[in-house]
């Protein structure tokens, strides 16, 4: 289903939180395009990624991240291979 490798794992985790098909997890996807991306799910996404990748988001990051691409960029800046 998902591509092998680190990026595939990221897509799998995100798809699991939103209960969507991994093909819907594209960089442009955000609260406006994914119906499941509610504020509560957003937090669940943050804590799930924190647990899966052993990193931590700041309050501002949690507040401001509005798309898969942005989440990816911030995680890459923290050293995660996503």
């Amino acid at each position: 289903m998902s591509a092998p490798g680190a990026g595939g794992e990221f897509v799998r985790v995100v798809a699991e939180v939103f209960e969507v098909d991994p093909t819907e997890v594209v960089d442009g996807a955000g609260p406006d395009t994914l119906a499941a991306w509610t504020s509560l799910r957003h937090l669940q996404l943050m804590v799930t990624l924190e647990e899966a990748y052993g990193l931590s988001f700041s309050y501002r990051e949690i507040r401001d991240l509005r798309s898969i691409g942005q989440v990816r960029d911030v995680m890459r800046a923290k050293g995660a291979k996503v």
């Binding site: 504020s39 509560l40 804590v47 647990e51 988001f57 700041s58 309050y59």
Partner: peptide, 15 residues
């Protein structure tokens, strides 16, 4: 408590 989750969404407990 995780203060980020608490202040952001009134979640009083960590997962």
């Amino acid at each position: 408590r995780d203060d980020r989750l608490y202040r952001f969404a009134s979640m009083a407990w960590t997962p």
